[in-house]
């Protein structure tokens, strides 16, 4: 798999700092499972956090706290986690998807567009859903109030910013205004997360209506 589109640097810093929302974090983690280049970048972002953390002012802990934690070291260190059941998507996505990708009960959203919403632990985490888009189908032109990540799982799509294939992550914010179109040749299956509603403009309400609230 040749991955050409990766999350932006500030996105990795936000993730390392723990300020990226839950939905966006799932898409990023799924990309990391597929992309060694970004795992290396992620380690650098976390090392930045480690260096800042190390430099925090530190007063010695109290004797009482020391004794208290020693009393809690009740059992030996845990072993590494065992193997996880085989799934047809990477682990971070599998943890949020209650079935295999091949068994997803897609729901119609608009002509040529099917979707399957995934649950997050809190509504404030944004939105997370799978899309399955028929070849040649165009989504309404939109921009974003916050961030939108699109990870291609199968097939391909293109927009004004380029061509996105399996493993590619489109990292979009309010500075991007785009109209994604699924490539010919097969359905395009994507994992999409947002941390704020999409903004549509200049379109026939009838066409946009199904996408409102996404």
């Amino acid at each position: 798999m040749t991955i050409r589109h990766h999350p932006a640097d500030p996105t990795l810093v936000a993730s390392a700092a723990g300020t990226l929302g839950e939905g966006l974090s799932v898409v990023l983690a799924t990309h990391l499972a597929l992309c060694g280049h970004c795992r290396e970048r992620m380690r650098a972002a976390e090392a930045l956090g480690g260096a800042l953390f190390e430099a925090l002012p530190a007063a010695p802990p109290s004797a009482a706290r020391r004794d208290a934690i020693l009393a809690r070291l009740d059992r030996g260190p845990g072993a590494a986690p065992g193997p996880v059941a085989a799934r047809d998507v990477p682990r971070p996505l599998a943890d949020y998807l209650d079935r295999d990708l091949a068994a997803v009960p897609w729901r119609g959203l608009a002509r040529g567009v099917r979707h399957y919403p995934l649950s997050l632990s809190r509504p404030a985490g944004g939105t997370l859903r799978l899309f399955r888009i028929a070849p040649g189908t165009a989504l309404p032109r939109h921009t974003h109030a916050g961030q939108e990540f699109t990870l291609v799982l199968d097939g391909a799509f293109h927009d004004e910013t380029g061509e996105y294939r399996s493993g590619d992550l489109a990292d979009m914010d309010a500075t991007h205004d785009h109209r994604p179109i699924a490539d010919e040749g097969g359905d395009c299956v994507c994992l999409v997360a947002t941390d704020a509603p999409l903004r549509f403009h200049g379109l026939v309400p009838r066409l946009v209506q199904p996408f409102l609230g996404l």
Binding site: A29, G50, E54, P92, D95, S121, R122
Partner: peptide
């Protein structure tokens, strides 16, 4: 490094306990 590893544990606990949110497992 050791500090980076401990930092990530502290960060995850902060998300989990102070914000009461969940985060995906990274492979």
């Amino acid at each position: 490094g050791a500090a980076t590893w401990v930092f990530t544990i502290a960060r995850n606990l902060r998300i989990d306990r102070l914000r009461r949110e969940r985060r995906p497992t990274v492979d």
